[in-house]
Amino acid sequence: MSPDHCPLGSTVVDIRAGSRESLRHHGDVDAGPGLLDFAVNVQGDGPPEWLRLRLADALPRLGSYPTVGADRVARTAVAARHGRSPEEVLLLSGGAEGFSLLPRLGVREAALIHPSFTEPEWALREANVPVTQVLLDDPYVLDAAAVPDSADLVVIGNPTNPTSVLHPAEEILRLRRPGRIVVVDEAFADAVPGEVESLAGRSLPDVLVLRSLTKTWALAGLRCGYALGSPEILERLQVGRAHWPLGSLQVEAIAACSEPDAVAAAREHAVVLGAWRDYLIWRLNEIGVAVHQPAVAPFLLLRLPDGELVRKQLRERGIAVRRCDTFPGLGPDFLRVAVRPREQTDVLIDAMKEIL
């Protein structure tokens, strides 16, 4: 498919035009010690006390190798949380590990829906998998017809980082084709009230869902996530994988965060995040900053004249925001800001007022 024959609102770009270095730039690079952090999407400074105590209780078991039994317990908890079977669950060392395993599916040609999280593209390119970028124009609405029919793997984020767009599940399912696997990055799905449009609970032979627990539960340093898919796909993902791919604390954390009380707490926090997000949007609009809407994720995409200069001046004032020119399809005038409590939002807005 050539760019001249793409549906309106999308462009297909040869991957050779991209920068490998930019694909590895993430929000933690923009953050730093002593900065008020709007660059990283992790909620809070660390896990809640109940989860810290749960992990502390598991410390005496670190003298033993992770067990098959513990893995089964965690997979059963994840499966129950999503109405799946334990055989449809693969525990991951962070959702990002799932992207590093994708080349093991024997992909001939991958299509990446952009702008979006760049780690899957990095992993595929490093494995010399031919990749096509499918760039969505503002308002970044998915059109399944924009994806080349030749792609046997398609990766999409839902909600998408950094646009905060939530694609309808049925539109994502239109990406399905015979012989194709559709990978849905749902790293932020638990931050959406009701987890609407999630495909995590759908047992489909050609859809692989990747989930992360690092954002909602502030476990970025522990690396916790899982994949949901058919046993056949999960088996292919594990070919050549290390014998103990996760440590005992990771397995314990995944089990703990999948239990009913934890899921209920995450749902409650998603509502709180929604209120914080509405307040942030209102304050940004109040000072004339363009915010991409509708937005459903715990972050917002902003567009400002001289966005790169604004980012640097915010940093001089002790505030870190995420640059977005490293996302395919976006330029230096785009910034991403994480949703934070109101008092932190007010600090950001006051600083932006001075700059603007």
Rank of each mutant, 00 (worst) to 15 (best):
T11Q: 15
R16M: 10
A17N: 11
V29W: 05
L35C: 04
L36R: 15
V40K: 05
A56W: 01
P60F: 02
A70W: 10
R75H: 06
R81I: 04
G83K: 08
S85C: 02
S85M: 11
L91G: 03
F99H: 15
S100I: 00
P103V: 10
R104L: 08
H114S: 13
P130L: 02
P130W: 10
V131E: 13
Q133A: 01
V134P: 13
A144H: 13
I156G: 02
G157E: 12
N161C: 13
S164Q: 03
F188R: 06
A189G: 11
A189F: 03
V192Y: 09
V192A: 03
E195Q: 15
V196G: 07
S198A: 11
D206L: 09
L210V: 12
L213F: 07
A218Q: 05
L219S: 03
G221Q: 15
C224I: 06
Y226I: 07
A227E: 10
G229W: 12
P231A: 05
E232G: 05
E232P: 08
E235Y: 00
R241V: 13
A242M: 00
H243T: 07
E252T: 08
A256T: 09
C257W: 14
S258Q: 11
A264K: 10
A265R: 11
E268W: 01
D278E: 15
I281K: 13
N285I: 01
I287G: 08
A295M: 06
A295F: 05
L304S: 03
E308H: 10
R311P: 01
E316V: 04
R322F: 09
R323Y: 10
C324L: 12
P328M: 00
V339F: 07
P341G: 02
R342M: 01
A351N: 14
M352W: 06
